[in-house]
């Protein structure tokens, strides 16, 4: 902090001394950026925000916000939040185990680097092609479904599985959630020093006690950060959901998508409120994350 301030001061000294304009001049350099952000991020968001509190003739109203609490819309939010929480949690836990296994000393280097590269690919391989790949795998005519039915006599769909449902969508989302977790958490796991583990063992701790008292608390800030990333990743997902279910599942993103295509709610302003609701959910999650992170990092701040 101190060094930053000092280098800022010397940075100002280095250039032509214009003391009275310094403040203004500092801002001049970031004006193009701010203008762009204003035009393509703030203004669109603001438009939706303002529209959420207006009726069709432009008067202020809370009717749209109230309308969000009708069963269909609430259930869309609720399904979106549930699927995001579930895949963030499962992707987070499995991804952590996989990353930890990959970084173990006994894992061959070629396997580690191959799988880490693969995770880079898979975490970016979302959307339409991913949904199609899962249809070819777990759809009614998918390879795994057919193989299980013909070879083992196990009919997934008769057992209640459906790729185009909540669980099917979750399994598909995991395909990008899991590798994203691996990528995000890998540096944190590498930061765990071997001596901590050895010191704990030496003092009589079992592996479980090591993880409970040392490993998990040290990783907690990174774990929380990764999970919030995963949550947002799933919460905003639209392409995968629409191409997998064709809009049959009631997700908030799909509802908004339908509203953009044609005014299915018969109230454009309610559509804006839907979008505002998504941002609010994300903002609440972010605030929660900051609170939890502050708590889990207290040993770093004192």
């Amino acid at each position: 902090m101190l060094s930053e301030r000092r280098s800022a001061a010397s940075g100002a000294l280095r250039l032509k001394p214009l003391p009275s304009f310094i403040g203004l001049l500092d801002w001049a350099g970031v004006i193009p950026f701010l203008l762009f952000i204003l035009l393509f991020l703030i203004l669109p968001s603001l438009y939706l925000f303002v529209g959420s509190f207006q009726d069709s003739s432009g008067r202020f109203t809370l009717e749209n916000i109230r309308a969000l609490f009708t069963p269909t819309i609430m259930s869309a939010y609720w399904v979106s939040i549930r699927i995001s929480l579930l895949t963030a949690l499962l992707g987070g836990v499995f991804g952590f185990f996989l990353a930890y296994a990959l970084l173990s000393e006994e894992t061959p280097t070629w396997l580690r680097s191959a799988l880490l590269t693969f995770c880079g690919v898979a975490s970016n391989f979302a959307g339409v092609p991913l949904a199609q790949a899962f249809i070819f795998t777990f759809g009614r005519m998918g390879l795994v479904t057919v193989l299980l039915r013909e070879a083992v006599g196990l009919d997934l769909y008769e057992m209640g599985f459906n790729l185009y449902s909540f669980w099917g969508l979750s399994i598909t989302y995991l395909y990008f959630q899991l590798p994203l977790m691996v990528l995000v958490i890998t540096p944190a796991i590498e930061g765990l020093r071997r001596e901590w583990r050895e010191a704990a063992e030496n003092l009589g701790a079992s592996p479980l006690q090591y993880w409970w008292y040392i490993g998990i608390p040290i990783l907690m800030p990174s774990l929380l950060g990764a999970m919030i990333l995963l949550f947002g990743n799933a919460f905003g997902a639209y392409a995968t959901a629409i191409s997998l279910t064709g809009g049959l599942i009631n997700l908030i993103t799909i509802l908004i998508g339908n509203q953009i295509r044609g005014d299915v709610l018969h109230n454009p302003n309610l559509g804006y409120a839907l979008a505002l609701g998504m941002v609010v959910v994300m903002a609440v999650m972010m605030s929660l994350y900051y609170l939890l992170r502050r708590h889990s990092e207290r040993w770093l701040r004192q």
């Binding site: 970031v30 991020l41 968001s45 939706l48 919460f235 979008a275 998504m278 994300m282």
Partner: peptide, 27 residues
């Protein structure tokens, strides 16, 4: 020149994480 502006730039640059693509395109 302006390290004190860095938190602001960072905030705006990371803001798209909070605003889902579908909301962005809608606006």
């Amino acid at each position: 020149r302006a390290r004190y502006l860095r938190p602001m730039i960072e905030f705006f640059s990371l803001l798209p994480f909070v605003i889902p693509a579908i909301v962005l395109v809608f606006g």
